[in-house]
């Protein structure tokens, strides 16, 4: 029910949403990386369910693409290699919460979570599990209680502007293409 609401909303704002079974993932990833000719892919390594991350990372590398991820420092913190990140054409992130009411993907910040992977490349692919759909924004925000991350980002469709004659044009500063693959259990 709320998943259908999400699908309608997200498609309405120009997100390329698909329901996928886990067994299709490898093939689809390979096809995408190939289509975009993505030489390097931004891929945060934290915040993923372990097996899903392994599948994605292996498949991307099998396609001959390099992955760019936040690097772990000696003190335990993380760093981006900004110039490497800047040259990625595809960013793949795990999205642990998406909102039916607004059609939004939610990305909290945190060490290693690398939300810039959903902003700098021209194409952004978010992967989720169907069970992570939330009914509304208010309910999701309430989950945090007083413990709000330093940056909580909501992505609802591609980057766009209506600033020239109100004609909607995509890919202004962020990705012009947002793909959301929802893996059904």
């Amino acid at each position: 029910m709320i998943l259908n609401q999400y699908l309608a909303k997200a498609r309405g704002v120009g997100v390329n949403v698909e329901l996928l079974s886990l067994s299709d993932l490898n093939l689809r990833l390979a096809a995408l990386v190939d289509k975009l000719q993505a030489k390097s892919v931004a891929l945060p390594l934290i915040g993923w369910p372990e097996p899903l991350l392994r599948t994605v990372k292996t498949e991307v590398e099998k396609c001959g693409s390099a992955t760019v991820s936040p690097r772990r420092r000696i003190d335990g913190g993380y760093d981006w290699n900004r110039s490497a990140l800047g040259s990625t054409t595809l960013g793949i992130t795990f999205c642990g919460a998406f909102i039916a009411e607004t059609g939004s993907l939610a990305f909290p910040s945190g060490p290693g979570l690398g939300t810039l992977a959903s902003l700098l490349p021209e194409t952004h692919l978010a992967l989720s599990y169907a069970k992570d759909c939330r009914p509304d924004l208010g309910g999701y925000l309430a989950e945090f209680g007083a413990d709000i991350p330093s940056r909580l980002t909501f992505v609802t469709g591609p980057s766009r502007t209506g600033d020239i004659e109100a004609s909607m044009t995509t890919c202004v500063h962020g990705p012009g293409r947002v793909l959301h693959w929802i893996i059904s259990a």
Binding site: G76, G77, P111, I148, R151, L152, R160
Partner: peptide, 14 residues
């Protein structure tokens, strides 16, 4: 398209 809720600067380790 985007909403950022900004609560303080970068935290340790970020």
């Amino acid at each position: 398209s985007y909403m950022s809720i900004v609560t303080g600067p970068r935290r340790t380790g970020e």
